[in-house]
C-alpha cells in the first residue's frame, strides 16, 4: 500500500496536476490584459511596378513602418510575431492578402520601433489588376504565449493607391 512505487506515482501525478493547473492559470491571466497597440505605415516610394512575363503584376515598395506594441506583452508572452499585409479586392478574388514584411519581437524592450524597408516578400498579384488599385496595409500581430492560448489581432490602415501606369 505505502510502497516506494505508490509514493513516487502519487508524487508524480500530483506534480503534473499542479503544473497543468499553473499553465492553465497563466494562460487565463492573459485575458485580463487589454492591449492598445498603435501602428503607422507610409509608402515612401514605388521602386518598380511592372507586369511579369507570367502576366501577373508585381510592385516593389519602400515602406516606413512605426509601431508601439509594448502593451501586448504580459508575463506569459514569449514573443510577438508582427507582419504587414497588403489587402485588396479584385474582380476574380474576393480577398487578396499579400504579406510584405514581418518581424519577430522577442521582448517588450524591442516592441517600439520605426524602420524603413523595402518589401521583404514579393508583392505579386494573381493576374494584372494592380494599376490604379486601392489597397489597405494591415498590421497584424500574433502573440505567442509561453504556454496556452494564442492571440491575434490587426489594425487596418487604409487609403493607399497604386499608380495608373507601370514604371
Amino acid at each position: 500500500m505505502h510502497s516506494l512505487g505508490y509514493r513516487v506515482n502519487a508524487l508524480l501525478a500530483f506534480a503534473v496536476t499542479i503544473l497543468a493547473l499553473i499553465c492553465g492559470i497563466a494562460s487565463f491571466s492573459d485575458n485580463f490584459n487589454s492591449p492598445s497597440p498603435s501602428a503607422e505605415v507610409q509608402v515612401l516610394n514605388i521602386n518598380r511596378f511592372r507586369k511579369k512575363l507570367t502576366g501577373d503584376d508585381e510592385v516593389s515598395l519602400t515602406l516606413n513602418i512605426s509601431a508601439n506594441l509594448e502593451s501586448l506583452f504580459t508575463w506569459n508572452t514569449k514573443q510577438v510575431f508582427v507582419f504587414l499585409a497588403a489587402e485588396y479586392e479584385t474582380p476574380n478574388n474576393a480577398l487578396n492578402q499579400v504579406s510584405l514584411w514581418d518581424s519577430i519581437i522577442p521582448s517588450k524592450e524591442r516592441a517600439r520601433f520605426s524602420i524603413e524597408t523595402t518589401n521583404k516578400y514579393r508583392f505579386i498579384d494573381q493576374g494584372s489588376n494592380l494599376r490604379g488599385k486601392d489597397f489597405n496595409l494591415t498590421m497584424h500581430w500574433h502573440v505567442m504565449p509561453k504556454t496556452g492560448k494564442m492571440f491575434a489581432d490587426n489594425l487596418v490602415i487604409s487609403g493607399f493607391r497604386l499608380p495608373e501606369a507601370y514604371r
Binding site: F81, N92, N93, A94, L95, N96, Q97, V98, D102, Y121
Partner: peptide
Amino acid sequence: HRVIKVHEHQDTGEVD
C-alpha cells in the same frame, strides 16, 4: 507553418 499569402476566389470561395 504560417500563412503569408491568401487569394480567395470570388465565385467558388476556394482559397490559394
